[in-house]
């Protein structure tokens, strides 16, 4: 479904991602792991045109999408729940969700999309008219994911969905992510919480210093010490 090759991201002279190859098959849940500053978020953002792509090919459903602007990509079925959630704080919960469906061509499926999101996150239904900025961190994360689901994505990118959340909430979020995969949504996620990620994902890539240093199934990665090494900077 997604095939990335030779991806490079540079902020001015600083190269944050130096030639990443990865692919995600239909229906898979794949994690991109690594320490802070490894280039995971830059990679994810580059896929949706939010970080400056220097080189590389991004194939989505057998089409090169590397040069397409962000606002078009969402209409092709690829979307991102960004790092730090970045919900629209001055808009209500309902307005945030409505924006999530902004690029959706099938307007008749909107009610269904709301129902689906509210079924996953009942708390959002309760808080529908509240300003998004007044939600708790966990609720904001649910809103960010719910907002991304409103478009009916084929490929969902999740950037640090557990960042800054209380341990119990983290568990809920991870359960939700595997529930989404069970519904047939293909997911590529960036996570710091390696142990919990490897419990739910099919495969993982490990990044360090802007490059992929290891890849394999969840079992393989759990068994080896490449992940630890990558975090300790010895990989």
């Amino acid at each position: 479904m997604l095939k990335v090759s030779g991806l490079k991201v540079a902020y001015g002279a600083v190269e944050a991602v130096r030639g990443v190859d990865l692919d995600v098959e239909q229906g898979e849940l794949v994690a991109l792991l690594g320490a802070n500053g490894a280039g995971k978020s830059s990679t994810l953002n580059a896929l949706v045109g939010l970080s400056p792509l220097k080189a590389g090919r991004i194939e989505f459903l057998s089409e090169d999408i590397a040069k397409l602007p962000t606002e078009v990509l969402v209409r092709r079925g690829i979307t991102l729940s960004p790092e730090g959630r970045r919900i629209f704080a001055s808009l209500s919960v309902a307005e945030n969700l409505r924006l999530g469906a902004y690029g959706r061509a099938e307007r008749d499926q909107l009610d269904e999309a709301y129902d689906q999101v509210f079924a996953l996150f009942p708390i959002l239904k309760e808080r529908e008219t509240q300003l998004a900025g007044t939600l708790s961190g966990g609720q904001q994360q649910m809103l960010a994911i719910g907002r991304a689901l409103m478009i009916g994505p084929k490929l969902l990118l999740l950037d640090e969905p557990s960042l800054g959340l209380a341990p119990q909430i983290v568990e809920t979020i991870f359960e939700l992510i595997s529930a989404l995969r069970d519904r047939g949504i293909t997911i590529l996620m960036v996570e710091q919480n390696v142990a919990m990620s490897l419990d739910i994902v099919d495969r993982g890539y490990v990044m360090a210093g802007g490059e992929i240093v290891a890849a394999g199934s969840a079992q393989e990665l759990k068994a080896s010490n490449v992940v630890e090494n990558a975090y300790l900077g010895t990989g």
Partner: peptide
């Protein structure tokens, strides 16, 4: 209103 708050994310939602 969304674009006024966070333009890149509004574009991510498909706002031109």
């Amino acid at each position: 209103r969304a674009a006024a708050e966070d333009f890149p994310i509004a574009q991510l939602m498909g706002v031109q």
